[in-house]
């Protein structure tokens, strides 16, 4: 099963390679990974998406806690968190398809963040499903490239 796991780490030298090294050394999967500073500049948040059975996920969490620089690990349960990804989609536009591309982007609340005579770059955020939906619709309309971030996740409420 897919799990979204947030890992708060001390912002020390090499901390990302410790986390990544743990996953590669023990053969765990990383489906996506996202890292950035938190409000406290000494602490970063790594959000990773992984999959595995319950035993594997339990081991992953325990192994993460064993890393000295790891402060906190949260395995988000579905329904209890908001998860978002961001994608930049580059579409080659032809005069006859420009309007259709725009309309489609709007339905997904996408924003045009760059325009050239023959292209749009569309920014869209949302769940992986939503982004996949937009990708599917833009494919026949001249989609040439997709740049996606990993997921960030926040628990609901305070």
């Amino acid at each position: 099963m897919e799990h979204t796991i947030s890992v708060r780490v001390r912002n020390e030298f090499g901390v990302l390679s410790r986390v990544a090294g743990l996953f590669s050394a023990r053969g765990y999967n990383i489906d996506s990974l996202c890292v950035a500073e938190t409000l406290d500049p000494k602490v970063s948040q790594i959000t990773l998406v992984t999959h595995g059975n319950d035993d594997t996920i339990e081991q992953i969490i325990k192994q993460l806690y064993k890393l000295i620089d790891v402060v906190k690990v949260v395995d988000h349960q579905s329904g209890t968190y908001v998860g978002r990804e961001l994608a930049l989609l580059k579409v080659r536009t032809l005069p006859e398809s420009r309007a259709e591309v725009l309309r489609t982007a709007e339905i997904f609340r996408g924003k045009i963040v760059d325009v050239t005579p023959d292209s749009y770059t569309i920014e869209v955020t949302g769940s992986p499903d939503k982004i996949r939906g937009l990708v599917d619709l833009l494919q026949p309309l001249g989609l040439v490239d997709v740049m996606r971030t990993g997921r960030v996740a926040a628990p609901r409420g305070l």
Binding site: F13, G14, S17, R18, G21, A25, I68
Partner: peptide, 16 residues
């Protein structure tokens, strides 16, 4: 040294 010893230590430090 940090990369090489990381998987064979409980923890390692580079003092800068």
């Amino acid at each position: 040294n940090m990369g090489i010893t990381r998987p064979v230590t409980k923890h390692n430090y580079l003092v800068k």
